[in-house]
Design a protein around this nucleic acid. Structure first.
Lengths: 112, 112
DNA sequence: AAACTATATCAATTATAATTGATTAAAAAA
DNA sequence: TTTTTTAATCAATTATAATTGATATAGTTT
């Protein structure tokens, strides 16, 4: 019998959404950006120096994260500051946890 | 000051490992395969029919998951059965949770 | 206004990954 | 032994994403 994720529409949708999110974060520099912003908002000039990436490439990755609504930007003078959209990230974290639950250390004898 | 993930070697390594894992699972069909196998081991012929994907393409995705050690295979007659390497998956789930923690419903007043 | 700084955008290139079609290999059945 | 079934592999193609270099834009300073 067909498994849930291939049959049930709701499950299939969740899986698709999760895969889309994964594609966004499955890139070292974008994952780094999310970590960097955990400390609080940062301007692009800080971010690209932390990443040791050219400015335009950094802007490109920021755009991908922003288009997916994981981060926001606000302009302040010449600089642009980016910050996490914690609520959105938390939403996707929950989805992710459905697929990769944070298993409490193994129940009992379990080898292999 | 440079954030942890860009400065500290251990943090940077964890991030890199996580990104590698994410690349493997950030593909709809591979994510589906992992879900399908949660029910228990399945042969390739079942898997590609569930996925509605050609046999060779399914084998290709299975190989990627297997090379990363997320699944194992065992031959039984003509068929090949795949199953989850739960311990490995659990290892990566834990890593993942460091970056995307399963936030217990919001602490208190938190808008935006 | 001219020069400068920070960021974004665009076109072109390169790198990576997914997909397809054809073929091979191994085990099973006839 | 021939045929059939299941799965893996290989080469070729297509699609997608990352990277680069050059340029544009907006705000700042002189």
């Amino acid at each position: 019998m067909k498994p849930k994720c291939c049959k049930n529409k709701k499950s299939a949708d969740e899986l698709l959404k999760t895969a889309e999110f994964l594609k966004i974060i499955a890139e070292e520099n974008r994952l780094k950006i999310l970590c960097i912003l955990r400390d609080g908002e940062k301007c692009v000039c800080d971010i690209w120096q932390y990443l040791e990436l050219p400015q335009n490439l950094t802007s490109h990755h920021l755009k991908i994260l922003k288009d997916f609504d994981l981060i926001s930007s606000k302009k302040d003078g010449l600089k642009v500051f980016y910050s996490l959209n914690k609520n959105i990230i938390s939403k996707y974290s929950k989805l992710l946890n459905k697929f990769f639950p944070p298993k409490a250390d193994p129940p009992l004898a379990e080898n292999s």
